[in-house]
Design a binder for these strands. Sequence first.
DNA 1: GTCTATAACTTGATAGAC
DNA 2: GTCTATCAAGTTATAGAC
Lengths: 187, 187
Amino acid sequence: MSTTTARDRLVGAAQDLFATQGVGATSPRAVLAASGVGQGSLYHHFPTKHDLAVAAVGATVDDALAQAMRSLGTDAPAIERLVAYLERPRDALAGCKVGRHTSDQAVMDDEGLRDVLDAYFVRLLGVLTAIFRETGLPADVARDRAHAALAIIQGGYVLARATQDPGALTAAVRGFVGLLTTQEKNT
Amino acid sequence: MSTTTARDRLVGAAQDLFATQGVGATSPRAVLAASGVGQGSLYHHFPTKHDLAVAAVGATVDDALAQAMRSLGTDAPAIERLVAYLERPRDALAGCKVGRHTSDQAVMDDEGLRDVLDAYFVRLLGVLTAIFRETGLPADVARDRAHAALAIIQGGYVLARATQDPGALTAAVRGFVGLLTTQEKNT
DNA sequence: GTCTATAACTTGATAGAC
DNA sequence: GTCTATCAAGTTATAGAC
């Protein structure tokens, strides 16, 4: 019974458009056109663009967290989980569906949307820090490495888009994983 | 004779607004208001928004490259130059004035602007790769580490903005520098 | 719940006086 | 070179019929 409701189609279309164009650059009209519903339906389910954005970005964050946990939440050794997460295939040229919103004024001017982004990164940083701690690192060092690991991914996306080369993300990951694993051997 | 011309004031105002709001979210009218010149002057010097954006983003890239070279172009040992660059004080919550444009549709849809971004990162990656090579690394490893170093900065900005915490950037840098320098000791 | 029509405003750009 | 006035198109949102 996967009868796609108007609401679901609106959220799905908004997720796609926000991921490719950003929230500020996507008009409610574009979401309407992509979803195939009428103008009144949009404003019935989501009285303002803010409401639509919270629903769509929230759904995207939930998807992204679930996907991250597929690498991080296994029962493999800590280092292997970290490397699996870092090396997971990503659509580098598309950019991070979540991280890209940090430079979108329409998102950063909206407290509700900022909170959604904050929750995503705080959550991921918590999980990564815990895994680095499993490797025997003290809390502050584990936290710094978690930040570094996440920055590699987010920054790798930026480099890939700027140079129009997906290899820039994988190069950044290789550079970081190389340091991580050599470090491991020597400790 | 630093008589500020209308053109200079337009470019300066555009640089500020593009850095804080992005190109797509900044209207020519906003640039007019901030610069204090009249509407006709803008369209006299810059017939289209594209022309203004190329001038302003180009100027910002030149500034950023010059600033990077103040850390990277000294005669200090290679590792010290790299650490100096990574640890340079940055306005983390403001985001990278260059990197943020990779998620701005108005920029990425414009070939001229994409080229400006590309040139900035290709240039920085080249300089960083050369410095990593000075430390005795083979070319491919040096290139990967250069990508990682730049990704740490760009990703650190993203984390800092998402969590509204400037400490996220410095934590990412600490995590990476920690790995780099421990690595150094063991090699 | 869904639709069409349209309001009120902003956008990027042009016209033409000075 | 610089100005004000204005345009056509697009933006977010509302009105009111079905």
